[in-house]
Amino acid sequence: MNKVTLRVKVAQYSEIEPRIGQTIQVMDRKIALFKVTNGKVYAIDNRSPHPKGGVLSEGLVSGEYVFCPVYDWKISLVDGKVQAPDEGQVKTYKVEIEGDDIFVVLE
């Protein structure tokens, strides 16, 4: 079976503040969008993998990590992995930038 890929324009690069998460809604998915200080943009599911959750777009960003605002879990923006001693993972999404447009790719 073939995978369906959807590429959606979600924001303007120039309007995203570094280290401040933004919530975007793409179909039924809530995604947290982050620009880090080196200029890279990352997109991950906007819910912490902790059983009680947490809105990741409200978390503190340090380097290429976001800290869950409720449980302080350190989560990689690159691969979505929760850092030890905690465990878990959030889904990451491919981000493409063309000019000033930011696209998220859903598969």
Rank of each mutant, 00 (worst) to 15 (best):
K9P: 10
K9V: 03
V10W: 02
V10D: 05
Y13V: 10
Y13L: 15
E15M: 12
E15V: 05
E17F: 04
E17C: 05
E17I: 12
E17Q: 14
P18E: 12
P18T: 07
P18D: 10
R19V: 10
R19I: 07
I20L: 12
I20W: 04
G21N: 03
G21K: 00
G21H: 02
Q22R: 15
I24M: 09
Q25R: 13
V26T: 07
V26H: 08
V26F: 11
M27H: 11
M27Y: 12
D28Y: 04
D28L: 02
D28H: 09
D28N: 14
K30Q: 15
I31D: 00
A32L: 06
A32K: 06
L33P: 02
F34V: 01
F34H: 07
F34D: 01
K35L: 00
V36F: 09
N38Y: 02
N38K: 10
N38S: 15
N38M: 04
G39C: 02
G39M: 03
G39L: 01
K40I: 00
K40D: 13
K40R: 13
K40Q: 13
K40V: 00
V41A: 09
V41P: 03
V41I: 15
Y42P: 13
A43H: 04
I44A: 03
I44G: 00
I44D: 03
D45T: 12
D45K: 03
N46D: 15
N46E: 10
N46Q: 08
R47Y: 08
R47N: 11
S48T: 06
S48H: 09
S48D: 15
S48C: 15
P49H: 05
H50N: 12
H50Q: 08
H50K: 08
H50F: 10
P51M: 05
K52I: 07
K52S: 13
K52P: 05
G54S: 05
V55R: 08
L56H: 05
L56F: 02
L56G: 01
S57N: 06
S57D: 01
E58H: 14
E58S: 11
E58A: 11
L60I: 13
L60V: 13
L60D: 10
V61I: 13
V61K: 00
V61E: 00
S62H: 08
G63N: 07
G63M: 01
G63W: 02
G63R: 00
Y65F: 15
Y65C: 08
V66N: 02
F67M: 11
C68L: 04
C68G: 12
P69H: 02
P69S: 09
P69I: 11
V70A: 09
V70Y: 08
Y71K: 13
Y71G: 03
Y71P: 03
D72H: 14
D72K: 15
